[in-house]
Design a protein around this nucleic acid. Structure first.
Lengths: 327, 327
DNA sequence: ACGGACATCGAACGAATGTTCAGCGGGGAG
DNA sequence: CTCCCCGCTGAACATTCGTTCGATGTCCGT
C-alpha cells in the first residue's frame, strides 16, 4: 500500500550528510553553527552538504508560473550557446499564429532594460510587425546620447511596420536620434543596389549600424501569408524561388535555409541592408514566436549569429522539441 | 469568508523573483551571473531571491533520513505496530516547545509523496497549526481527481489554522476539490450537534470522509496554553473537566486519556467530527511533536488507531524512553 | 509648485561559503 | 621497518552572499 520511504539505505556517512543538509536548508543554520552542533569542522560540514547536493538528496521546488519558462530559457541558452534568453508566459490562449502582443511586451522590457542601464549607445533595428508593436510598448523615457539606426532599407509601399516606422516610434518615445536608410527595402536590380548603397546617407547609416552595440531584429517567414508577401515587398515568383532554394526564414532582409546559410536567391543580392557578417561580436537580439517560426528560429540560432532570443512559451517548446539532439 | 489568499497580484515582479530563484537554486548560477542575465544589479537579484524566500516560493525537501532517526523510526514502528514512521532530524536545539516548522516540512514531504504516487484519492484532513504550516510547505502540484475533505467542524472564531483554512490552502496548491463542514467546531449542546450533523452538506462531507484513503491529523494537547484554549474554542471550565477526567490529548476534536480511550467529558459529545471508529482500516497519519506531546502520542499510538507518525527526533526519543518497557 | 514622506537603488563592507593545499596518519608492499 | 600511496583533515585563501547606508527618485498632500 503506502510504499513510502520504508526501505531507504541511508548509509552511515550519507546519514551525516543528510543531517547536515537538513540543518542547513530547513533549519536555516549557518555552517558554523552546524559544525559546532555536530562537533566537526566547518569545512567538513561544507563537504557533507556538497556531497548531499551531488547525491541528489536535496530537492528544490520553485513556485510560480514562470518556472516552466525559466526551464525553457535555460535549455535554449545551453542548446544554442545564447548569452541570454527570455521566454514570455503565454498570454494568448487563443490560436493566433503570431503572439505579437506577448513578444512586444517582452521585447520592450528587454530594450527598456538595455536603455536603462546605459549598456547600449547605438542600437541597430530591424523591421516587422513585432518590432513595431514593441516600439509602441516601450515606456517613454528620455535618453540622451542614444542613437537608433535602421539596418535595412526603409521606404516601401506599405507605411505601417516598416523599418522607418519602427525607428520613428522608437525615437519619438526616447527622444533619441534616429537614422534610417532612405532607400527601398529591396533594390530592383543588383546595379540599382550598388548605386543606392553608394549614397552618402546610406553609407553613413550603415557605418553607424556597424558600430551598434545592440541589434534588435525580428524573424520573417517564407510563406504566402508572410508579412513581406502580403505587403508586396516580394512577389510570389520570388517566394517560389526562395522555397525552391530551401529558404526557411528571413532576418534583416536576408533569407536563410534550414542550416542558417543564406540562400543563393537573386533577391538576397538585392537586399539593401547591413551585412550579416558585420553583426559578429555584437549583442544580437531577435524577437520571434508563433506557430510558423520554430524552424526558422532553430536555423538562425544554430549559426551563432544571434546572442539573445525573446520568444513565447509555446514556441520555445516547439524549438526545443523539434531540435536535433546535437549540441 | 475566510480568504487565506491575501496576496496581491504582482505578477510581473513575482515573476522576476521566480526567475531569479530558479536560476539560483536550480540553475546553480551565481547571483552575479543571474544579474547579468536578467540585466540588473546583483543586489537586486539578492533582494528578489530573499523576497521569493519570504513569500514561500521556495520549497526544499531532503531525501533520506539520518541513521539515528531511522533507528528511532524502526523502534517506533515495532513498538506500536505502525505501518510507517518519519522522524525528522531535530532543528531546534532551542527551547521552542513546538517544532512546527520541522513537522510541517516533514509532513509536506509525506503528503507530497502520497500525492505523487497517486496512492490517495480522498484525503481526510484535521486541524491545527502544524497542519496549516504543512499546507503552506506543500509544493504546488496540480492533481486531478484528488479530493480533500475536512473531518471536523470548521467555522470558528479564529480564522487562522482552522480546518477550513487548512483545506483551503491544500486545494489551492493542488487544484483538488475540497470539502468542509460548514458548522462549528463544537456545537453548543448535544441537541445542536444532532441538528447540525443532520445537515445535508455536513452528512455529505462526513460520508466522503468515511471513504478517505488517507487521513492526516494533528494532535492537540490539554493545557492552558494549548491552541484550542488560546483561541477560545474551549473554556477553562471545560479544560478543568478534561483534566479531571484524565484527558491527555485530542485528535480530530475528541479528547482521550492516557490509555487512548475517549474521556467521558461533555465536550466530547458536542464535537462535530467524523467518528474515530470510522478511521479503522484507513491509513491515518498524525503530525505531532514538542515537549508537551510525548504522552499524548504514546496514548493514541497504543490504541492502534494511528498507522503513521511524523514527529521530530527529540519527541521520538521521549516517546520511546517514557514508554512502558513492554514490547 | 513645493516639500516631505517614502520607496528604490547600488556601492561598499562584513559575514558566510567554497576551494586549495600542505600535512597527517594508516595500511600495504617491498 | 621503511617507504610510498592514498584519502582525509583543517588552516588559509578566494569567492560569493547578505546587509547597511547614503543618494536618488517618486508619489502625494498641503
Amino acid at each position: 500500500m503506502f510504499s513510502g520511504e520504508a526501505s531507504r539505505p541511508s548509509g552511515g556517512e550519507n546519514s551525516l550528510a543528510t543531517r547536515a543538509a537538513w540543518l542547513s536548508f530547513i533549519g536555516g543554520l549557518t555552517q558554523d553553527e552546524i559544525a559546532s552542533r555536530l562537533s566537526m569542522s566547518r569545512v567538513k560540514v561544507n563537504r557533507l552538504i556538497a556531497q548531499a547536493h551531488r547525491d541528489g538528496l536535496i530537492r528544490v521546488f520553485i513556485e510560480g508560473t514562470p518556472q516552466e519558462c525559466v526551464t525553457l530559457e535555460d535549455r535554449l541558452c545551453r542548446m544554442f550557446g545564447l548569452s541570454g534568453c527570455f521566454v514570455a508566459p503565454m498570454l494568448d490562449e487563443g490560436e493566433r499564429p503570431l503572439p505579437v502582443e506577448t513578444l512586444a511586451v517582452a521585447g520592450a522590457r528587454v530594450l527598456h532594460n538595455a536603455l536603462e542601464t546605459g549598456q547600449a549607445r547605438i542600437i541597430g533595428v530591424g523591421h516587422g510587425r513585432t518590432l513595431a508593436a514593441m516600439a509602441d510598448r516601450l515606456p517613454r523615457q528620455p535618453r540622451d546620447g542614444v542613437r537608433f539606426v535602421s539596418l535595412l532599407g526603409s521606404l516601401t509601399r506599405n507605411a505601417a511596420a516598416n523599418p522607418f516606422d519602427v525607428i520613428h516610434r522608437l525615437c519619438e518615445r526616447t527622444g533619441a536620434e534616429s537614422y534610417f536608410l532612405p532607400v527601398p527595402f529591396f533594390a530592383d536590380t543588383g546595379e540599382d543596389k550598388a548605386v543606392l548603397m553608394a549614397q552618402r546617407s546610406v553609407r553613413h547609416a550603415l557605418d553607424l549600424g556597424r558600430q551598434a552595440d545592440l541589434v534588435i531584429a525580428g524573424l520573417g517567414e517564407v510563406a504566402s501569408g508572410s508579412f513581406l508577401v502580403k505587403t508586396g515587398m516580394i512577389t510570389v515568383e520570388e517566394l517560389d524561388e526562395l522555397h525552391r532554394l530551401g529558404a526557411v526564414g528571413e532576418i534583416l532582409g536576408r533569407f536563410f535555409d534550414a542550416k542558417g546559410r543564406l540562400v543563393d536567391a537573386e533577391i538576397n543580392a538585392r537586399a539593401i541592408a547591413i551585412d550579416l557578417a558585420d553583426l559578429q561580436g555584437k549583442e544580437v537580439v531577435i524577437l520571434a514566436g508563433g506557430k510558423s517560426k520554430p524552424q526558422a528560429i532553430r536555423s538562425i540560432l544554430s549559426t551563432g549569429l544571434v546572442t539573445r532570443l525573446v520568444t513565447d512559451e509555446a514556441t520555445a517548446h516547439a524549438v526545443i522539441e523539434a531540435a536535433p539532439q546535437g549540441n
